[in-house]
């Protein structure tokens, strides 16, 4: 058996989960520099599902496809450390300002170039937008079936897959044929840790842009160790209709952004002293809020 060809869609995101006080600047705008850039959590769940299939079916390859600025090569390396076979960084200024639909278009065109994929596996949603839209929008662009909210691959035999989905109010098990797009829920198993050997092998995996910055001789390096080449695809490497790219290709526009200004209520500030707590509980009882 030849194994499966799997592409994992992953995104580098600002870590919005543990936003501290320094996340806001004095003028009330977001201090992006204070937020570390991380591998989107549910995309790691997706990677784990792909790696499990690879463990079970020899010959399977797992590639990471990500779109973002140059530093997003970090998450391809992170994927390599955990067992992915390679990755492609889709990066170009022409993609800047893309909404979910323009993003899906660019990713869809890159997937068309990759071709003959058995499974495209992505996280359900990214924590910076929480839209859960790119997976299904990519599927539609490629006229492929999608199965969203997947928690477990229950069975995979030749071109037939059985998947368990975790829905708002229940679970559903579905059976369908490959190829398809799968989006994975955060309730699926966590991604395995980095593998020390893979870390040693791939820590020097870089994009050409990164190596140029470091003044390294990448032609010799890539000739000797082709696995260390993280390919960068720009808009010239994929077939695109410019009108569907970036800000101008995005049907949704941000009309305005408001910083959150808190309307202060008339709050009673009380201490944790017994007398204060008791008088509060008495007030709540008197107003029939409790009791």
């Amino acid at each position: 058996m030849k194994g499966y060809k799997i592409i994992v869609l992953a995104k580098q995101v600002p870590d919005t989960r543990n936003v501290g006080k320094d996340a806001m600047k004095a003028d009330g705008t977001v201090n992006r520099a204070a937020l570390p850039a991380i591998f989107n959590p549910e995309d790691l769940n997706a990677l784990e599902q792909a790696l499990r299939i690879k463990d079970q079916y020899p010959g399977t390859t797992v590639q990471i496809l990500t779109m973002g600025p140059g530093r997003a090569a970090d998450i391809i390396r992170e994927g390599l450390f955990r067992g992915a076979d390679g990755g492609i960084l889709l990066t170009d200024r022409a993609f800047a300002g893309s909404d979910t639909l323009a993003t899906s278009y660019a990713i869809g065109q890159a997937l068309k170039k990759i071709g003959d994929v058995d499974m495209i596996i992505a996280g359900r949603q990214a924590i910076d937008g929480d839209t859960a839209q790119v997976g299904p929008q990519v599927a539609e662009k490629l006229s492929m079936l999608q199965v969203t909210y997947v928690e477990e691959v229950k069975e995979l035999k030749k071109d037939t897959i059985v998947l368990k989905r975790r829905l708002d109010r229940g679970v559903e098990t579905v059976k369908c044929k490959l190829p398809l797009v799968i989006t994975v829920n955060g309730t699926a198993p966590e991604c395995r840790a980095r593998n020390a050997k893979l870390l040693m092998t791939f820590k020097r995996a870089k994009t050409v842009t990164e190596l140029q910055k470091e003044n390294e001789d990448y032609t010799t390096l890539y000739n000797d160790r082709p696995e260390l080449n993280i390919p960068e695809w720009t808009v010239n490497d994929i077939e695109t209709d410019a009108s569907q790219l970036g800000l101008s290709g995005s049907p949704t526009k941000v009309k305005s952004i408001e910083n959150v200004v808190l309307q202060a209520k008339d709050s009673k500030i009380i201490s944790s002293a017994d007398a204060d707590i008791e008088s509060m509980m008495l007030e709540l009882l008197e107003s029939h809020t409790i009791g």
Partner: peptide
């Protein structure tokens, strides 16, 4: 709300 909830965005589809 968007981006960690620090902003409220108004989105339109012109």
């Amino acid at each position: 709300p968007a981006f960690g909830g620090n902003i409220i965005a108004t989105i339109i589809n012109p």
